[in-house]
Amino acid sequence: MCGRYVMARAIGDLVADSGALEPDEELVLPPNWNVAPTSDVPVVLERAEPASGTKTRREIHVARWGLVPPWAKDLSVGSRAFNARSETVTEKPTFRAAVKARRCAVPVDGYYEWLKPEAGAPKSAKKRPFYIHPEDGSPIYFAGLYEWWKDESVPEHDPARWLLSCTILTGASPDATDVEAARAEGVDQPGLNALEQLGGLHDRLPLPMDRDTLDAWLEPERLGSAEAAGALVDRVRRQAFRTASGWILDEVGTAVGNVRHNGPELIEPLETLL
């Protein structure tokens, strides 16, 4: 799963890397080395150009992390919907409309995951946090969904009446069979090692996208059925491990477990290895 992540690069850098247009108004998000659910985060999405009917424009917006569907009575739904299981996303009421029509990418520098003590370990053994990030320093684009929610308690012409929110899709982490499949596809040994480490770290993985998959995922076409949406989700899952094979895992200090701690020191690796 993805419960905390890092996004420390400037909006302008994301615009350049993602191919998005410059925002019409200035977007300011301070660097955040400990992004938690319900925080404001950047999202990348595409919209159809109304005038042309065929062209699209890629945009960056700021959204609340934790999807709030239009039918929700209040924001509390979002605190439980910061991740969406890809296996059931086309069926769950919270996500099934968004996956057909409101897909986005959530850019991150990396994310944190905690390794539980092994079975039989002493009771004093603690969970160990790891920072997972691309070895080349490029951003990760997680497959996501977005929704607009209307706050009926806010006056009609107040911009605060509308809330943009998002979620991140997750899938099963790679197992031994997936690692062997990646080997057959030509993934090198460091990449295979990364997949093995990811599989041993947690049973769920936030789903990253390569550039071709990103383009397909962001296409603003409204899909006509759950089957069509499921086929697109399957495409994301099929390439996720190859994309993740370019990541490295660094053990970091336990300070990341407290959201009051926020700074670049959180991602400094410890000397120990997974």
Rank of each mutant, 00 (worst) to 15 (best):
D24C: 08
K123N: 09
N83Q: 01
L164W: 09
P190A: 07
A228V: 10
V106G: 04
M7Q: 12
E113M: 11
Q239F: 07
S79Y: 14
G19E: 06
R80C: 00
A143K: 10
L145Q: 02
P107F: 12
H133P: 04
Q189A: 14
D158C: 15
A48G: 08
G191F: 06
V252E: 03
A119N: 02
L207R: 04
S86Q: 09
S79G: 11
H157W: 13
A244F: 13
D234Q: 14
D188V: 10
T272Q: 13
A20T: 09
L218G: 04
R238L: 12
P139Y: 06
L145F: 08
R58F: 06
V108M: 15
L195F: 07
D17V: 07
E113C: 08
D175A: 10
R58S: 01
Q189R: 12
L270Q: 14
K126F: 04
D136L: 11
W149S: 00
Y131K: 03
A98R: 00
N32C: 15
A226V: 06
S79R: 12
R128S: 11
P30R: 15
V154Q: 12
W148C: 03
S245D: 09
W65F: 14
K73Q: 13
V236D: 01
A97E: 13
D158K: 14
Y5V: 02
T213C: 13
E113T: 05
A119C: 00
R235V: 01
L198W: 06
T38S: 15
D17K: 02
E221N: 04
S173W: 04
V256W: 08
G186D: 04
V108I: 15
V35N: 03
R260I: 07
E180L: 13
P37E: 01
L207K: 02
L21G: 08
G253Y: 04
P50V: 06
L232E: 08
E265H: 12
N34F: 14
R80W: 05
L232C: 08
G171A: 07
A181V: 09
P208Y: 07
D109I: 01
I140Y: 06
D151T: 04
F241I: 02
A105L: 15
L27R: 13
G3W: 05
W247H: 12
A20P: 06
R64N: 02
V187I: 14
F241P: 00
L270Y: 14
H133L: 04
G224L: 10
